[in-house]
Amino acid sequence: MPSAQTLVHKFNDLKTLPHVAIRVTQLVNSDAATMKDFEEIIKLDPILVIRLLKLVNSPYFGLVNRVESISKAVVYAGMKNLRNMVAVEALRNLFTEDDNQEFSRRQLWKHCATVAILARMIAERLFGLAGEDEFLAGIIHDIGLIIEDQLAAQELREVARLYRSGTEVITRYEDEIIETNHCKVGGLLVFNWNMPPEVVEAIKKHHDQDKVYPVPSITSILHIAEYIASRVNCGAVQGRQDPLPPYLTSHMKSRMTDYKVLIKDFPAEMAKAEELYREEA
């Protein structure tokens, strides 16, 4: 059976991240990139342009005047917002409708979006962080599952079945049946896309139950967001939830009221995101 590396290679032969996403990620990493360069790329994709204008005109930006020009919107949004937006568009297309009872890509997409929004909320509200990298980590953290679904669909369904009825973490079953797991595969793929190292790290470790990660860090925030998502029935695989590592349980308990306030605002945030990323006609 394949190693993570082989899976990633095979996957890249099948599907590549759209040119726009690759360029934008490169630009974010480049010191010499100007917003003009971003504008030139975003302009190529009408869907991105619509998203971008929606984004900067959303209450989140609280601008007095409506922004109509792409160049202005690009400047308002900032590089990381642009990168996230492009990543969302690129990945959404990978989560094509291919439902079955064992494993649903649509469900997975909903899970990723939920985790992303929660991760950003936690970063912003509890820790006063910008939350952009956390959002990105949330959106792409389960990309490994997509690859496995693409290249080892039968095995993945077996994994899902075992997981649902078992007690172990999902990666344990993957290692057993697929001989690799979506954390490894996803981490490798995202590394090749030149994502920030902290994001790559979080993706590799997001099912790591035994280690203690600093709070806050993208990895620990991703863990918490994943936990909350699964509690609101938005897990990657429905029907079972992984427990929270003990150090995060005590963290959440200690800031229970904070989380209570956050959860109260979660449906509204989710609705905003749904509005922003709603499929255009």
Partner: peptide
């Protein structure tokens, strides 16, 4: 107490925005 924490969260969000503003 909850309201106080909510306000603290809002403050953090404002701080984030401020930072983003400076960053901008």
């Amino acid at each position: 107490n909850e309201a106080l924490l909510e306000s603290a969260q809002l403050h953090r969000q404002i701080e984030v925005l401020k930072k983003q503003h400076v960053h901008l």
